[in-house]
Amino acid sequence: MTDLLVQTGDRPARPPRRATAAEPCIRLDRVVKEYHTPIGARRVLDGISFEINHGEKIAVLGRNGAGKSTLVKLIGGVEPPTSGTITRGMSMSWPIAFAGGFDANMSGLDNIRFIARLYGVDPDDAVARVDDFAELGRLLNLPVKTYSSGMRSRLMFGLILAVDFDCFLVDEMISVGDQRFQRKCYEELFVKRSDRAMILVSHDLHIIRDYCNQALVLKNGRGRVFDDLELALRIYDTL
C-alpha cells in the first residue's frame, strides 16, 4: 500500500462524513508548490486559491506542465504545499484513474477489504459493491500484480464508488474498459452521484460542459476560477 492510501493526517478513520449543503467544503488559499531542482527552486503552483462547496463541480484546465497533476496531489494530500493552506471540510477521494495504490502481492479481494477498513466501510459490503461494479468475478481472488492496467482501473473505480466520498478527485477521466463499461462509470459518477462535489482534471470538453459549473484555468502555475465556462474554455483552447 502506498502513502496515498495509508496517509491518515487528515483522512478520517470512520465512515466518510456527508457534508451539509451550507458548509464550505474544500478551500485552497494562496497555495504555492515549489520543487527543488539542480538549477534552483521551480515554482509549479503560484498562489492558487479557490473554494468548492457541496455538490459543486469544478474543472481544472491547463496545458501539459501547467501544474494540474501537482494540484491534484496537493488536494489529495499526497504532497504538502510549500506555502498556503488547503482546508478539507469533507471526505475526499484519492485521484480517480490513480491505480497505483494497491499492494500488488495481495489479491483484489484483500486489497478491497484493507482499504475498506482504512476508510471505515464494512469490508463485506465493499467487496459486494466492487464485485458488482467492476465485473472482475473470480479474478478478484488473484494477486493484483497479475492484473492488466484496465483491470486495476476497474478495481480502483469500484473501490472509490464503494467508499462513497463527498468529493471526487478525477485526474484525467477514466478510460476503463469498453464503451459499455465507460458509460457505466459515467452513470455512477456523474448521474447517480450528481449531488457530490468533484474536482475534474480533464481535456474532455463535453464532460466539462455537461457536468461542471465552474472551471479553474491553470497557466504556468497561476490559476483563475471562472463561473463562465465558455470563457474558460476559450482561454484553454488557446493556451
Binding site: 484555468v217 497557466k219 497561476r222 490559476g223 483563475r224 488557446t238 493556451l239
Partner: peptide
C-alpha cells in the same frame, strides 16, 4: 491604410 496590430498569441488568465 497602415495598421499596427497587437496580437496576443496565448489565452490569458490575467
Amino acid at each position: 491604410p497602415v495598421q499596427v496590430r497587437i496580437i496576443m498569441r496565448e489565452g490569458a488568465i490575467e
